[in-house]
Design a protein around this nucleic acid. Structure first.
Lengths: 202, 202
DNA sequence: TACAGTACCAAGCAATTGCTTGGTTGGGCA
DNA sequence: TGCCCAACCAAGCAATTGCTTGGTACTGTA
């Protein structure tokens, strides 16, 4: 009868986490709708029905994958916001933090990128839209602080710049692979260089 | 027995085009796998079986949608490449051209962005990967010309810059809506400003 | 040794899916 | 008038889907 948190049985038994990880990889690669419970079970070496010993639906699997990832991510954003770094440093930290999330949670990021719009239509996943709004607030705040402090050029359209950064950062999940030639720090460095100073010759 | 072209009956009868347009919107909004032939038929006001009078499979519908769009897009790229504009102008034109494509063919762009990876696994859609490579060639050429002519800053990583531009441009299809407050030209202007000169204060 | 709980299997059901088949309708043309 | 043909309907089939049910093997604990 323990009812703390959205996922009462999140006290992962090990196997549960393992299955979620397998599911996350498949959801990220093929899409949620395009992954069958039999696919997941096959990858785990069990029968599809056995999944329902651990989870009560395929939906609750994505739900748990996404919500636990989001919780971790937004905790990190909050820390940046609450720090007393200057505006430019905060922006840099927020960008680096995002690439770090891509490095450590590619499947979760990919699922969110690909499925949030569609899943968000269901009431169960309404928190996805809330998180989106929350993320926008973070960035708009950072950018406005940057403008106010003179760190950013005054002719920027804040809303459009926010979208530019958001899209640019997260879409990297499509090609970035941990363990590849480029570390997530390398990518963040280059992206920040372009973002802050542009590609044109000075 | 006419066998010219990949789609023998592409000589659109009007109704055919109409059905493809309806399908494209649904594919873009819900995803290919997530759109049923009954969804398409309902939206068109006919029964699902009647679709098979016009097309021989759901797959051939996306196929036709994507391949005809790609043909148009790459013709436009070619024109930029063959022009005698300077390097920077060519880059600007290529960016603007992409936003124009998003404006005029949002559904097609969205489908390509969302489904290309998955569909590309099938032999039938191998041309998607080829087009991707072709697009990369275009951009790498433009960027290297820009570096050679001194229009771009010499410390740029060409490969990463290519990805940066590609991702940034196409991902805009997720939020851009024709007829909204911002025209595609507005968006292109702002994006080019950031891309070329960065967001930091000079 | 008895027992409880976790992790799973074996079989199958109801709904949904893409697609097929054989027929009907109505406008254009000779 | 007779015919054609594009466009559609009505019904349904086989496969796939998410999920359920009733049971079994194994492990740790008292």
């Amino acid at each position: 009868m323990s009812t703390e948190g959205a996922h009462p049985t999140t006290a992962a038994t090990g196997r549960r986490r393992e299955l979620l990880s397998i599911a996350a990889e498949l959801f990220a690669d093929r899409g949620f709708k395009n992954t069958t419970v039999r696919d997941i079970a096959d990858a785990a070496g069990i029968l599809s029905g056995s999944l329902y010993h651990h989870f009560d639906s395929k939906e609750s699997m994505v739900d748990e994958i996404l919500s636990s990832f989001q919780a971790e991510l937004f905790a990190a954003y909050d820390e940046v916001l609450r720090s007393d770094d200057d505006a430019r440093t905060k922006i840099e930290r927020a960008v680096r933090l995002s690439f770090e999330a891509i490095d450590r949670h590619r499947h979760e990021v990919a699922i969110f990128q690909n499925e949030a719009d569609f899943l968000g239509q269901q009431e169960r996943f309404a928190y996805l839209a809330e998180r989106n709004a929350q993320s926008r607030d973070v960035w708009i705040t950072l950018l406005e602080d940057g403008l106010a402090s003179g760190a950013l050029r005054p002719d920027l359209d804040v809303e459009l710049t926010y979208r530019f950064i958001r899209d640019t950062v997260w879409v990297a999940v499509r090609w970035y692979r941990p363990g590849g030639k480029l570390t997530h720090t390398d990518v963040a460095d280059q992206y920040l260089t372009i973002l802050l100073d542009g590609i044109a010759h000075a």
